[in-house]
């Protein structure tokens, strides 16, 4: 089996997939804790559907670089969604649902009407579940992914304390003079970037899993914010690595394999938390 793995690692596309997979897993886990705690778990779903719609448009317009369209549209939607979510609680929820389902339907419609591809359902399926796109990355996409991931990690580390303060108690942070709107905006932009990145890995339907599972698993075991953050980052990377390797060896779809490993890790953490956490 090691031999087989060694053989696969000779191929650049496998190495690319591993690099990108690990980076994306790392980034997506970082903000997971914040999103879960701020009750924004849904925003991942909403945004990924928006990104799906944007991708459909990009595909129809035959853009050579679809990121140019997808990234800005997703960022703008993230900002709008977070804004409605703050002012009016109930309507914010409804707004996410509306935008998310609307974008999904719209995207599929556009693909259906304008698509020239003969394998339409295959295209849609790979956008939704990310089946093969991670194995077909070009060198340019890999670099883009590396740059964006590094930016996300650096921003997260630099603003870690502020993000903690804003997540834990927004009113208090605001009262002590932190510009909370600015940090919410920052969080929105970073989430949008992560979602767009992660679509390559697991597709738009499974993104929420990538964002939320590591955070929830870590929260079973650790009791400090730092502990949870580090643990969820490590868990997410390990699960992604295991998932990609398994999918290469066993020939299963990458995205769903990673998510399956994440679910298994959650189960383990849940049990571990039950056993160890009562003391």
């Amino acid at each position: 089996m090691i031999d087989k793995l060694g053989m696969y690692l000779q191929y650049p596309f496998v190495r690319y997939a591993l690099i990108v997979g690990i980076l994306i897993a790392l980034c997506s886990s970082l903000l997971g804790v914040t999103l879960v705690l701020k009750r924004f778990s849904f925003i991942g779903d909403g945004l990924s559907h928006v990104a799906f719609g944007a991708m459909a448009i990009a595909a129809v317009c035959d853009l050579t670089d679809e990121m140019l369209l997808v990234l800005p549209i997703t960022i703008i939607s993230a900002i709008l969604l977070l804004r409605t979510g703050q002012n009016t609680r109930i309507q914010g929820d409804a707004a996410i649902a509306m935008i998310s389902v609307g974008a999904l339907a719209f995207g599929y419609l556009i693909m259906n009407i304008f698509s020239t591809s003969s394998n339409l359902s295959g295209d849609v399926c790979s956008t939704l579940f990310g089946s093969t796109s991670i194995l077909t990355l070009t060198q340019k996409e890999v670099w883009l992914c590396i740059i964006l991931s590094v930016a996300v990690v650096v921003i997260f580390v630099l603003f870690y304390n502020k993000i903690f303060a804003v997540t834990f108690d927004e009113n208090f942070a605001k009262a002590t003079g932190i510009k909370t709107e600015r940090y919410n905006l920052l969080i929105a932009v970073v989430i949008a970037v992560i979602i767009v990145l992660a679509m390559n890995l697991v597709g738009s339907l499974l993104i929420s899993a990538l964002v939320i599972f590591p955070a929830l698993s870590a929260m079973r075991i650790f009791r400090s914010f730092k502990g949870v953050t580090i643990c969820s980052a490590v868990l997410s990377v390990v699960c992604a690595l295991a998932g990609i390797l398994i999918s290469i060896l066993a020939g299963t779809p990458v995205g769903s394999t990673i998510v399956a490993v994440d679910v298994a890790a959650f189960a383990v953490c849940y049990v571990a938390g039950r056993i160890g956490g009562r003391g």
């Binding site: 705690l37 304390n161 834990f168 932190i178 400090s224």
Partner: peptide, 20 residues
């Protein structure tokens, strides 16, 4: 309500008061 299940140690929370 949000604070009730927030994973944070006492020290982390007290320190966050210095943010301003």
């Amino acid at each position: 309500v949000t604070q009730k299940d927030f994973p944070a140690s006492v020290r982390e929370i007290v320190l966050s008061g210095c943010q301003g």
